[in-house]
Computed example of a mutant assay.
Amino acid sequence: MKISRLHYPLADEFKVDGSTVVAMGFFDGFHKGHQAVLQRAKDEAEKRGAKLAVLTYDHHPAIVYRKMSPHEQRYLTLNDYKMKLFKDFGVDQVFLVNYSYDFQSQTPEQFVNNFLKRFNAVAVVAGFDHTYGDKKVATMANFPKYVKGAFDVITVPAVDINGKKVSSTRIRIELDSGDVDSVTELLGRPFQTRGVIVHGEERGRLLGYPTANVKHSEYQWLPAIGIYVVTVEIAGKRYLGMASIGKNVTFSDVHPMTVEINLMDFDHNIYGEVVNVNWLSFLRNEIKFQTPEDLIDQLDKDKQATREYLEQHPDVID
Rank of each mutant, 00 (worst) to 15 (best):
I3F: 08
S4W: 09
L6T: 06
L6R: 05
L10Y: 02
E13M: 09
E13F: 01
F14S: 00
K15D: 05
V16M: 15
G18A: 15
V22D: 03
F26P: 01
D28H: 01
F30W: 11
Q35T: 00
A36Y: 07
L38G: 11
A41L: 06
E44V: 06
A45K: 00
A45Q: 02
E46H: 00
E46Q: 01
K47H: 07
G49R: 05
L52Q: 00
D58Y: 06
D58R: 01
P61Q: 04
I63K: 12
Y65F: 14
K67N: 15
P70M: 06
Q73W: 12
R74F: 05
Y75T: 02
L76R: 14
L76F: 15
Y81N: 06
K82E: 06
M83H: 04
K84N: 13
F86D: 08
F86H: 09
G90L: 06
V94H: 10
F95S: 07
L96T: 03
N98H: 13
N98R: 13
S105N: 10
Q106T: 10
E109C: 03
K117F: 07
R118F: 04
A121W: 12
A121Q: 07
A121G: 10
V122M: 04
D129K: 14
D129C: 10
H130G: 13
T131W: 09
T131L: 09
K135D: 12
K135G: 02
A141F: 05
F143N: 06
P144T: 14
P144S: 13
Y146A: 07
G149Q: 05
A150R: 02
V153C: 13
V156R: 04
D160C: 13
G163Q: 07
K164R: 03
R170K: 04
R172M: 04
L175D: 06
D176Q: 15
D176T: 09
S177D: 05
G178M: 05
D179G: 04
D179N: 13
V180P: 08
V180A: 07
D181T: 01
S182Q: 09
S182M: 06
S182E: 10
E185Y: 11
G188A: 05
R189L: 07
P190D: 09
F191H: 08
R194T: 15
V196G: 14
I197C: 01
G200N: 14
E202S: 08
R205Q: 14
L207F: 10
Y209L: 05
T211N: 00
N213H: 01
V214C: 11
H216V: 14
H216I: 15
E218R: 12
E218F: 11
E218Y: 14
Y219F: 13
W221V: 11
L222N: 02
V230H: 07
T231N: 01
A235Y: 06
Y239I: 01
L240H: 03
L240D: 04
G241P: 03
A243S: 08
H255C: 02
M257P: 15
M257Y: 15
T258K: 11
N262H: 15
L263C: 00
D265S: 07
D265I: 03
G272K: 11
E273Q: 04
V277N: 09
F282H: 06
F289Y: 14
F289K: 08
F289R: 04
Q290Y: 04
P292A: 01
Q298A: 07
L299W: 00
A305D: 00
A305P: 00
T306C: 05
H313Q: 01
D315E: 15
V316I: 15
